[in-house]
């Protein structure tokens, strides 16, 4: 498998250069034919690319920070995620159902899509390459603690780990625990502590000053 042979190559997920060239060529051919036939307009494609580029984990971080400072918002986020996100003007786009999962001292949630790459893209942007990798999809459901250790996260043995497998219809957003020592932090400062990985569940939110 390619992932084993080229473990240190950041471009592993794309395949080798020959294959990449042939897929790239077919993509170019398909796009030019569809544009000529008027099936798609070039500016529709650019708008979709702009929309994709505009969505980043900062959106999710804003949601988490609000949940940390506003218990009522958090309660709503955990029971009716869509409504809470709408209230915060976070557009979930074409996603059907988004479920927020709260990490606590006793429960740690981590998200995967074993079948493909389902991810709350409209809130976190495109998924990282590792999330789409065959290894992560395979392993996190059978050995979550081992995988988290690989990400540098050692969980207490008495913390329960729950792995959520996403589907096309249900996407998950992890609400990491609020780091200690942040009582005086502003909402914006708190948002700065919330990494993409902490909202997938493979990391904790950062401690202040780190």
């Amino acid at each position: 498998m390619e992932e084993h042979n080229h473990g240190h190559d950041a471009h592993t997920q794309v395949g080798d250069s020959h294959e990449m060239t042939s897929y790239e060529k077919r993509a170019g051919a398909i796009l030019s034919l569809l544009t000529e036939k008027g099936v798609v307009a070039s500016d529709e494609i650019w708008r979709a690319i702009d929309d994709m580029d505009s969505r980043t984990p900062a959106l999710g971080a804003k949601v988490v920070a609000r949940a940390w400072v506003d218990p009522e918002f958090k309660a709503q986020l955990l029971t009716d995620t869509k409504a809470a996100l709408t209230e915060l003007d976070v557009d979930i786009g074409s996603l059907n159902t988004v479920v927020a999962l709260e990490n606590t001292d006793k429960v740690h949630n981590v998200v995967v899509c074993t079948l493909c790459s389902c991810y709350p893209r409209t809130i976190l942007g495109v998924p990282p390459d590792w999330y789409k990798s065959l290894s992560y999809r395979s392993r996190v459901v059978v050995d979550p603690r081992g995988v988290l250790r690989e990400f540098g996260l050692e969980l207490d043995p008495d913390v329960e780990v729950r792995v959520y497998d996403s589907t096309a219809d249900i996407r998950y957003l992890v609400i990491p625990s609020r780091p200690a020592g942040t009582e005086a932090a502003t909402e914006d400062e708190l948002a700065g502590l919330v990494s993409r990985d902490s909202m997938i569940g493979v990391a904790m939110a950062s401690a202040p000053g780190k």
Binding site: E3, G7, D9, L115, D129, W130, S135, R137, S138, V141
Partner: peptide, 17 residues
């Protein structure tokens, strides 16, 4: 495509392109 628990999975490559 059904990769959950697939036996031959190796280390996770965290490189990003």
């Amino acid at each position: 495509h059904d990769r959950g628990g697939w036996p031959e999975a190796g280390p996770i490559n965290r490189g990003q392109h």
